[in-house]
Write a protein that binds this DNA or RNA. Structure first.
Lengths: 205, 205
DNA sequence: CAAGAACGATACTGACCGGTAACACCCGTG
DNA sequence: CACGGGTGTTACCGGTCAGTATCGTTCTTG
């Protein structure tokens, strides 16, 4: 089902630029949403512009190409995902083990959500096989940063083998999210939290 | 990079219909390869037909639409993947634990392969968000069958909690494959075998 | 040999795509 | 008021897409 430009209701558009939000922001916001929900390749620039309450011309005044817009959207996704760490640190100050479990719980919420379509970055990596696409840099940077943060947290929490724990948690998360996409949240993904808790518990003596 | 119809070298085409292979088979073979390598949405029917040494008209005499061709290709992928179980059973007759480990090793080979692009079925689920697409039925059927086979094997191998082991191994595999797509085989995916072995060992007393 | 089915080649349709040109407009600053 | 940058609008370009029509060929089968 192609996403035609006319599917954007006036209400949707109004939601984005209710105040004096600059067009660039509106475009990024709409593009992020559409790319995530329908897949990057399914969404045309015209549909993005219309959803943002503007038009293609203005879009191309702010982004050199659709590929650059894609990369910028993924950068936004990565930024938002990185914000989770500071939120967790604020909620469980000094208690790194609790932060680990909080990370697990937050991930579980996303996985359980029927609207969830998996990790936007990982999906993009599958949708864009070209290794030279500007989006690939963003994806790799984000994934390695995510791994580093998790590794540091595992280390601070006193894990016996932080590297092992971090790798396993990453694989578990990624696997649960892709499982949820093909077999729903009641398949193997339903065991995500329990397995994650077990992995953490086994490493914290 | 769009896949133009002219990229199929004569040698490639010749490879497919060297003998008297019927066009339907050639088309399916070429489509499978192209879909997997470049992504389903990136490949046009014209390119498929040309790679198969035929043309669009013949393609549409055998498949009602591109969507049906996609579903049929995924059916082929599923069939091939299901063949692994009988191969494993033949290699380790009666030794279900060895079959489990063999399954792990076989998966590791695919993950390590730099040409690997992950599970074709899982990728399709991400590339095709539409729940009514004919491919979705194939994907869900395959994934649940895969889970059932693994569960039966875990049970036969004498796992303490076969359900747990099957779920975890599925998530681990899926996670490792998607990790390999974004961070390569040296990221978290590099720990796939060791973690899998640990999961199995912990369940077999 | 005749008939018919399958196949190949070419051209076409209508729609959509990413991207651009040209021009009118609004609005804040001087 | 004049001006100039950011924006909206429309039309357009070349290209690609899925899918179809037409016709000639080839190959099988009776």
């Amino acid at each position: 089902m192609p996403v035609t430009a006319t599917t954007a209701s006036p209400a949707e558009a109004a939601f984005n630029h209710s105040d004096k939000v600059p067009p660039r922001t509106r475009i990024l916001c709409s593009a992020r949403e559409l790319f995530y929900r329908h897949g990057i390749r399914s969404v045309g620039v015209e549909a993005i512009a219309e959803a943002a309450g503007t038009n293609k011309m203005t879009l191309y005044r702010h982004f050199a190409s659709k590929d650059e817009l894609i990369a910028e959207c993924l950068r936004l996704f990565a930024e938002e995902a990185n914000g989770v760490w500071v939120t967790l640190a604020a909620k469980h100050p000094g208690d790194e083990a609790a932060q680990l479990r909080g990370w697990l719980a937050a991930a579980a919420v996303r996985i359980t959500d029927p609207e969830d379509r998996g990790c936007a970055l990982a999906n993009a990596a599958i949708e864009i096989p070209d290794r030279n696409h500007p989006a690939r840099r963003v994806i790799e940077t984000f994934k390695s940063a995510q791994h580093d943060r998790l590794l540091a947290l595992a280390r601070a929490a006193g894990a016996n083998e932080p590297q092992v724990l971090a790798d396993n948690l990453i694989m578990l998360l990624e696997g649960a999210r892709v499982c949820a996409q093909s077999t729903g949240p009641d398949g193997p993904a339903g065991r995500f939290v329990r397995t994650g808790e077990a992995l953490i518990a086994a490493q914290l003596c």
